[in-house]
Structures are given as structure tokens and as C-alpha cells.
Design a protein around this nucleic acid. Structure first.
Lengths: 112, 112
DNA sequence: TCGCTGTTTAACACCTTCGTTAATTAACGT
DNA sequence: ACGTTAATTAACGAAGGTGTTAAACAGCGA
């Protein structure tokens, strides 16, 4: 149930191991072994996580010799953020103030 | 596997039906029946989606008489956005410019 | 070619998620 | 009390995610 892009992105982010991998990649490209090192899970498991991230567009992969290097591609996060921004006024103070300001203007316009 | 807050939030957002429900709630509170109306899935299914959203803190629920009204509580989206913001420099142009600016300042400080 | 290192694929188990229908609970109105 | 409306819980099945170990594949280097 679901193959839309946003769902894929959010699903990819819904795993702490994958988020940690992204965090690691933010510091620079890394091989599968390097990425696996901090975790107590097997290499095949990491390999699958990388496949999920790649499928979501959150990483790209290149190979040199027998090493496969992953690099961060955070553009999908922009999409995700863009979606969430629709709800910003429900939490963001400055947005609330802006909203109040606009309402004030509106009600003043009505008076005239 | 996983009960950390951020995972719960992202997992909740990884479903298009749930995102649509949030979109609907952005226009105002609604009962379960009202929320179910646009979808071709059963009421129990909607009821569970609401439970997922509630568990993620994305909605709160109140009851009056036999109706249970849901209302949006987007604060968790702020948390999610906050997490993603760490990667903003990987996609946002203005961030790149800011980054370049900061690096310029830093390297100039080193010269002195 | 052989062996080593790095990584993926295969096969399996387990648990969770998502949907269904049927039954139950809750509160209202008569 | 009874029937109706609103919503949830129960019980079940299909599908998918995550992890494991063992086997396979890929590329290097002697």
C-alpha cells in the first residue's frame, strides 16, 4: 500500500539506523563497512538499509574497485519539509503572529 | 524495533491516508465519520489511523456525546523539521551561500 | 589462478502494519 | 427500555519490514 514519493521518503526516515547513517554521511562519503561499524547489526542488514535510502533518493552510490561508497543527497528532505511547511502555522510562533497580523488587517478592512 | 519519538512521527507520516487526514484537519476539527468520508476504506481502518496519529502526537482527541473530534497538533512536525534542518545545507542554496560566507570569515580569522 | 576483502543475494523467521467483517461499547432521543 | 448513530475492539489474513546466517559475486593483488 503506497509507492508515492513522500511516503517512501518518510518511511526511509522512520528508522533510527537509517537516520544515523544519514548523519554519518553528512560528515562525508563512506563505504558500507564504515557505515556498519558503529552498529551491532550485520552487514547484510546495513546493505538493505542503504538500498532503502537509495530508493528514497536520500543517497547515491558509486563503486571504485570493490568498495561502494555512499553519499548524501538530501534533496528529498526538502520535499518532506515542503510538505510539512503547510502546517507551520500550527506550531510556529512567528507564523502565529503573522497570522494574527493578517487577521487584524482583514477585520480592519471590513470595518471600512 | 524502535519506539523513539522521531521514528514514530516519521512512520505516522509515511502513510498517504494519514497525511490526507492531517490535511483535512488543517481546515478544522472533524469527527471520525467526517474524516472517513473521502476514503474508500472502512471506519475501523480510519479509527486505527487516528490512533497512530494520536500516538505520534499529531492529533488530540476529545469527545462530546457520541462524537469524537480530532484536532491537529502539528508540534511533532516541528521536531521532524528540526531534525531535517541539519541537512539543509545539502540542498538549500541560501544555506550554501551562508555556509560559504561563514567559511570565508573563518579563514580570514585564521590569517590574523 | 587462488585467496582475500568488500558487498550483495538467498532463504528463512519473526513481528508489525493495514485492511476486512462482525461484535461490542457509548451516548443520545423517544 | 429500545432503537439509532458513532466509534472502537476483536479476530483474522495478506503483505511487507527487519534481522539472521550462509552462499554467491566482484575486484584486487601475489
Amino acid at each position: 500500500m503506497t509507492t508515492d514519493r513522500l511516503s517512501t521518503i518518510f518511511a526511509a526516515l522512520a528508522d533510527p539506523t537509517r537516520r544515523a547513517i544519514l548523519a554519518r554521511l553528512a560528515e562525508g562519503d563512506a563505504t558500507v563497512n564504515e557505515l556498519a561499524e558503529p552498529f551491532s547489526i550485520s552487514l547484510p542488514a546495513i546493505s538493505r538499509h542503504l538500498k532503502v535510502l537509495e530508493h528514497a533518493g536520500l543517497i547515491t552510490r558509486s563503486r571504485t574497485a570493490q568498495w561502494r561508497s555512499s553519499s548524501l543527497r538530501a534533496e528529498p528532505l526538502r520535499e518532506a519539509t515542503a510538505w510539512m511547511d503547510r502546517y507551520r502555522r500550527f506550531w510556529d510562533e512567528s507564523f502565529t503572529r503573522l497570522d494574527a497580523h493578517l487577521q487584524r488587517i482583514q477585520s480592519e478592512e471590513k470595518k471600512q
